[in-house]
Design a protein around this nucleic acid. Structure first.
Lengths: 221, 221
DNA sequence: GTTTAAATTTAGACTCGTCTAAATTAAAAA
DNA sequence: TTTTTAATTTAGACGAGTCTAAATTTAAAC
């Protein structure tokens, strides 16, 4: 990580990375995610463009260059390794992982990164089920779909969950609705109604809004 | 730690804490330790005084208030806990502890502090032998003296070593001249000449300059 | 094809922490 | 006691990152 790249720049690049899934990220999207005014986002995007970390055409959104993406992926790697570490080694509750990792991700050295990765056995996914980029910036994503879209009778494995909604994370943890859990969609009420899950002999009712934030993959029964 | 207290403020308070051993810290001392110009140090000291974290009389140096000392001790606690953690859990070499801890000390939460402290068994000293302040800011220091001042035939235990001179730290590590080691001062050459140590059956020659940076306590043979 | 609404950018200002150069004060030397 | 030197402070400026308010552009609605 180029040492002249500041905390703020890293945060913007990470935000743009997450916002540019389909086509360029808009200024307002970036501003909202960063919690700053649109004017501030514009100013920073212009600076990033001068540095060659993003491509920006006025009014047309912003896109990472290969150089910008490389930094963004390193930040994401730090973030997800840290979350995994805080969870598995220090026993953090789910709802405290994100904020701590957000702060630390900009301040750990490559030695720290390597040491914790090795200690954890070079994990490929964080505690929310998100993939951890490799040191060289490779990241593999799995096609998962919202639990809300599963059909009655379907057996699914939880693959990943949203990582920023604290209330939701507390609920996930309490319900053990965590990556690797297997559940059967026992019944679905109409009109975004509750969904009944079976895990072994145990049944769980969850709301539709929650089920939209749990991403699952289908498994053979 | 008051969240409105920035990284820079914490660093200045820590520096002033370490500089004000006998009487107030001078502006130039602070500036040198912080690696900034005297003008910058003056400016920051004035800001700290307005915040009530230091007492400052023009041209007369600076002294921490109780509020400022509390923050300084929390930073020192973070630093030394982190060094202990990096060493004992992640297996860092001695010469990489300080820089990593200096960066991380400003960015860990109280939960992180508590978790690593508990994991380490609430250690009282860091790997260099420096005392770790308690959460409430209590710190106990031991009267140790430089190995260079020990007399021939004296049995001593290494209590603490300097923590910022990288070359020296590499030498300490290579020689296993670490806290808790017991050595006998076998002979001293005159005029700041080398000192011969015995550890068990092993003998070690060390220079006077090194011996001035190793602090020891006398032990009954 | 205009008009309107929303998104975006520009203009101008502010704080923080830094700098250099010049002015001031304290303390040591004469 | 005066002079000289060293430490310290002030003055003024700068870059990073932010803000609000006003101007501009895009795109959607009419």
């Amino acid at each position: 990580m180029d040492p002249s790249v500041t905390h703020a720049i890293e945060d913007y690049l990470k935000t743009i990375y997450k916002s540019q899934r389909n086509g360029p990220a808009s200024t307002s999207e970036v501003a909202r995610a960063m919690g700053v005014s649109a004017a501030s986002a514009t100013a920073m995007i212009k600076r990033l463009a001068v540095m060659g970390l993003v491509d920006h055409t006025s009014y047309q959104g912003v896109r990472l260059t290969p150089g910008g993406e490389k930094i963004a992926l390193q930040v994401v790697r730090h973030h997800r390794l840290l979350e995994t570490y805080l969870r598995q080694v220090l026993g953090y509750p789910l709802d405290r992982l994100h904020d701590e990792a957000c702060e630390l991700e900009h301040h750990i050295s490559e030695m720290f990164e390597d040491k914790i990765s090795a200690l954890l056995g070079d994990p490929t996914h964080d505690p929310h089920g998100h993939p951890i980029p490799t040191r060289s910036g490779r990241i593999v994503d799995v096609a998962a779909f919202p639990l809300a879209e599963a059909v009655e009778g379907q057996d699914v494995e939880i693959h990943r969950i949203a990582d920023e909604d604290l209330e939701l994370l507390r609920y996930f943890e309490e319900q053990r609705l965590l990556p690797h859990e297997r559940v059967r969609v026992y019944s679905k009420a109409p009109m975004r109604g509750p969904i009944e899950l079976r895990r072994g002999r145990k049944r769980t009712l969850i709301g539709y809004d929650v089920a939209e934030k749990v991403f699952v993959v289908s498994v053979n029964a």
